[in-house]
Design a protein around this nucleic acid. Structure first.
Lengths: 232, 232
DNA sequence: CAGCCGCGTTAGTCAGCGTTAACCTGGAGG
DNA sequence: CCTCCAGGTTAACGCTGACTAACGCGGCTG
């Protein structure tokens, strides 16, 4: 029964399972894990109630699969980009830009999952939660390394806190989907990128460059492959 | 029965009601509104179970009072600071700094409430939710005005989105209380301030100042009453 | 001293919800 | 044509958890 999950590798059809996961994610994000019943999830995909148990062991299993999946995708994507940046010999600034863009893609494409990711983590069984935490930690590590490569004067702790807050910044997009509509995706992504970059550039205490962030940024070699959205 | 609530104005003793609210906030933030039972809340204050109903109409009422209270305190505090800044003739930069510091105080002192504030809003009855949303909107307006005063080139929309994301940045402190301990309060506050300020200073698209944020920041007079944490 | 009343207690009710059980069905395979 | 089974269905069960009822008790007040 479980072995046929290999068939899900074909991304052709949404395969009911993924359909259920998608709707569950949306509902969980909207009203919280405890706030949504299995009947609602079933109704959202056209079947009713306990029919879900043909696909999942229980409500918890859905949440677990969602959270583990999201943190793994985040980490894998981040690591891939970091490795590509290193292989291409990009500047620290460009490497950080790549991480930021990856996270922004995620925050804009999978808002609900991002929301769930830091909201319902405690509802998981110990094993799953541990796994998610590990992936999260590794992802943070990726960022901390990238940030400290660009701003060597930052303390480990400063870098870590800054990275966390920047996650908070980037992950805040779901909140403003309601009242004030966002501009088009490209514009929003560019704005988020500037904000994140600006925050990180000001993380250093007082210091030596006297200009704050920009002075330090000027220290690394002129980025040849930088996109149009990093005017510095 | 309701009229005696005027006695609660005396802030001398924690008065059981406030004690309950405090514990409820902590528990709600930890495990979510649906995740905590009334018995637990009661146990947290030394009484057990339905004894709470001598003080509150129900679980919902506690959440409502918490959320309305927090948003009102946020808005009132923000407005007070904005008015003081205006009365004192402070520069736009100093006015924004005041708002930021106020929010940071809040985020550090009342982490649980901050968490609840953007997590469990949907569990409220229509009336309460409307009230909270109104206060939130007014608070955002305060910030948008302050930001646009300092960075006049920003679009209304850009400013609004930026403010929201900065809230996300500042409100992310609860997340990192667990694994990696924060430095002492003053240091953390200063770091958060720099990050927020840095983000906002980079909100503008490309543009004209050529120096970005710092150029504009240099335009306002040296802040006489500023603390040691605003070195600019 | 007597009675009221704020404040709690314990036992019980009742609804909601996750989960299970038992049954049904349409299409693929021998 | 019969069988099997993936994938549904509805009915029912059990538990949890919010809320109510009935009662108890100490401390002001008359």
């Amino acid at each position: 029964m479980v072995s046929m999950s290999t068939k899900t590798a074909g991304t052709a059809a949404p395969s009911r399972r993924e359909q259920i996961l998608r709707e569950a994610a949306r509902l969980f994000a909207e009203r919280g894990f405890h706030g949504v019943g299995v009947d609602e999830i079933g109704a959202a995909v056209g079947i009713s109630g306990p029919g879900l148990y043909r696909h999942f062991a229980g409500k918890d299993a859905m949440l677990a699969e969602l959270l583990v999946g999201i943190s793994r995708r985040l980490y894998d994507g981040g690591r891939r980009r970091a490795e590509e940046s290193a292989a291409a010999g990009l500047s620290p600034g460009a490497a950080l830009d790549a991480l930021i863009d990856g996270h922004i893609d995620f925050a804009l494409d999978d808002r609900e999952l991002i929301t769930l990711h830091d909201r319902e983590l405690d509802r998981l069984r110990e094993a799953d939660r541990k796994q998610v935490r590990k992936l999260q930690r590794q992802y943070v590590e990726l960022w901390v390394s990238a940030v400290r490569a660009l701003y060597p004067d930052l303390t480990e702790l400063e870098a870590r806190v800054s990275v966390h807050t920047v996650f908070g910044l980037l992950n805040s997009t779901p909140h403003l989907s309601g009242p004030s509509a966002l501009p088009d995706r490209e514009t929003t992504a560019a704005l988020l990128h500037r904000l994140a970059r600006g925050a990180l550039s000001s993380a250093a205490p007082a210091a030596e460059g006297s200009g704050g962030g920009p002075a330090v940024q000027a220290a690394y070699p002129p980025p040849g492959s930088e996109g149009p959205d990093t005017p510095v």
